[in-house]
């Protein structure tokens, strides 16, 4: 894959050099960031629609916090602190499965249980940080929360690409079944859908997507990109197709504009913040459209 990234980079840098593309495209870190956004935007935008329907808004945040603990465990076990993917993936997947298992055992609602698990993982992570801080600069932990899209390397991009492919291969054939399983489990059962298995698959999927995006855009931004574009698209959509397409477009555009605008306009805004601010602006606009235009008001009930 690295050869493909290189050839894309060289092509774009050539176009920037002859003035076809903006000057920002002469920098490799900008091109890497944009390639990541072209994967992250559609991925989080599409997945976000299911998160919103399933009312699992804070799950990705819980996973993000669990990742802190995962990183701490990885460092304690001797994994590289710059790319502690094995410990992050392992711990977060266990975290997600344990959360879902507990939900089935206790019948607690999603939001209550996510809140409980989020608190536990934060407390556990904070305790471990005490030991880890003696070994490394805790700034590494900060990057898990806030990411660094302008500092991604080919390893991060490859992991994101693999996770995007896995997510597409799983979600596309199972989209209807996953959505139906959360809308009405009885109806899903009657149609031969294995509801619990699909719920576990979905939780694992959201977990690996969140973890793959953590180092690039951070836990806080993953949650924002899962929720804001889907919420904005819901404001102005009448159909499921419009909802998903709108969410994907808003997420992708927010990412691209968030990366390019601060550089082009010389704004003193961090990339992550800019991405969320663009998405938030779209959300505000769609909210105004929904509340003022009768065409969109009619989508509500």
């Amino acid at each position: 894959m690295n050869t493909i990234y290189e050839s894309i980079r060289l092509t774009l840098q050539g176009l920037a050099a002859n003035g076809t593309l903006p000057q920002a495209f002469t920098y490799q870190f900008v091109i890497n960031a944009l390639l990541c956004t072209l994967l992250i935007g559609p991925l989080l935008g599409a997945l976000g629609t299911m998160i919103v329907v399933k009312r699992m808004a804070f799950f990705s945040q819980a996973v993000g916090n669990a990742a802190l603990t995962g990183v701490a465990i990885g460092i304690l076990l001797g994994e590289s602190y710059t790319s502690p993917y094995i410990s992050m993936f392992s711990f977060c997947i266990l975290f997600g499965i344990a959360l879902k298992y507990t939900q089935y055992r206790t019948n607690l609602s999603n939001d209550s249980l996510i809140g409980v698990f989020l608190s536990i993982s934060l407390a556990f992570g904070a305790s471990l940080l005490l030991y880890v801080s003696a070994k490394i600069n805790t700034h590494v932990m900060e990057s898990v929360l806030f990411g660094s899209i302008l500092a991604v390397d080919y390893t991060d991009m490859n992991i994101l690409l693999v996770v995007t492919l896995i997510a597409s291969l799983v979600v596309l054939p199972l989209y209807n079944q996953m959505l139906l399983a959360s809308l009405n489990p009885s109806l899903a059962h009657a149609r031969g859908i294995r509801v619990r298995l699909l719920e576990y698959v979905f939780v694992v999927l959201v977990t690996i997507v969140t973890v793959a995006c953590l180092k690039i855009i951070g836990a806080v931004l993953v949650e924002a990109l899962l929720l804001i574009p889907a919420a904005a698209a819901r404001n102005i959509s009448r159909t499921l197709g419009g909802f998903v397409a709108g969410s994907v477009i808003i997420a992708t555009l927010s990412c691209i504009l968030g990366v390019l605008m601060p550089m082009q306009l010389g704004l003193p805004v961090p990339t992550g913040g800019a991405i969320v601010l663009v998405a938030a602006l779209v959300f505000v606009v769609t909210t105004v459209m929904r509340t003022t235009l009768s065409r969109f008001r009619a989508t509500g009930v």
Partner: peptide
């Protein structure tokens, strides 16, 4: 009930494998 789904979407969700969206 605020999930943007038409009657056609609901039927697609329930009856087909192709993603309803």
């Amino acid at each position: 009930r605020n999930v943007p789904m038409t009657v056609r979407d609901v039927m697609a969700l329930l009856t087909q494998r192709k993603p309803a969206f």
